[in-house]
C-alpha cells in the first residue's frame, strides 16, 4: 500500500483525536514504523491493521473510519503533498474527476510496486459523472466515497456521492455516481 495512505491515517488520528491516540493505534496494530514515507510501498496488512486498531481505539465503525480517512486524505494529506498538482488536474470538479484515471495511470508508471487502483469515467455530464473503481484490495469502497467528497470540498462544489455498484455484493467492480451543482462547478 502506498505510504501516503498510512501517513494519512496517522495524520487523521493525530490531528482529529490526538497524538496519544495515534501511539495507541500503532501499538494495538503492532506497527513499529517511526514515520511513513509517502511513496514507499508498505504491506497492505499493515494498513488494514491500522484501520482495525483505529476503530477500536477511537470507538468508530470501520465504515466511519474509512470514510473519514478518504475525505481527510484528499482535503489534508494529498492537498499538502500534491496540492497545486491536484488543482492543476482540472479547473472544475468535473474536469478533475475526468482526469482521475490518468492521474492513477501515472502513479502506476512512476511507482510500479504500488499497484494503485484503476479508475474509469463514463456518462460524463455537466453536473454528474459515473466513476468506476477497480482494485484488488477488498473493503475500501468507503475510502473512495470519502475521497470523492473530499475532492468536491477542495473545488468548493457541493456534491453527492452514491455508490451504485458493490464489488463485495457480487459486482465486478465498485461504481459511484457523483452529482454536483453545475452552476457552482462551471
Amino acid at each position: 500500500m502506498h505510504g501516503m495512505i498510512n501517513k494519512s491515517i496517522e495524520d487523521l488520528v493525530t490531528i482529529k483525536f490526538g497524538a496519544d491516540k495515534w501511539i495507541a493505534v500503532k501499538k494495538k496494530a503492532g506497527v513499529e514504523v517511526e514515520a511513513f514515507i509517502s511513496n514507499e510501498s508498505y504491506p497492505d496488512q499493515m494498513t488494514y491493521g491500522l484501520v482495525g486498531a483505529a476503530t477500536e481505539v477511537l470507538g468508530l465503525t470501520v465504515d466511519q473510519v474509512l470514510y473519514a480517512f478518504g475525505e481527510f486524505w484528499v482535503v489534508h494529506t494529498a492537498s499538502r503533498g500534491y496540492g497545486d498538482l491536484l488543482k492543476s488536474a482540472g479547473r472544475t470538479l468535473g474536469e478533475f474527476l475526468d482526469y482521475l484515471p490518468l492521474f492513477h495511470t501515472r502513479v502506476a508508471l512512476i511507482f510500479p510496486n504500488l499497484q494503485p487502483p484503476r479508475f474509469e469515467c463514463s456518462d460524463r455530464h455537466e453536473d454528474r459523472i459515473t466513476m468506476h473503481y477497480y482494485s484488488h484490495r477488498p473493503g475500501l469502497s468507503m475510502v473512495v466515497v470519502g475521497m470523492l467528497n473530499g475532492v468536491a470540498q477542495i473545488y468548493n462544489t457541493p456534491a453527492t456521492v452514491t455508490q451504485t455498484k458493490f464489488k463485495d455484493k457480487g459486482a465486478d467492480h465498485d461504481e459511484f455516481l457523483v452529482v454536483w451543482s453545475a452552476a457552482v462547478s462551471t
Partner: peptide
Amino acid sequence: LVLRDFALHDSTGDLLQLVESTNTS
C-alpha cells in the same frame, strides 16, 4: 496552465507528477 492543456503524449504531466512525488518523499 492545467495538465489538460498538454497533449496526452506530452510527458510534462508525468514529469510534474514524478517531481511532486519525489518532493513529497
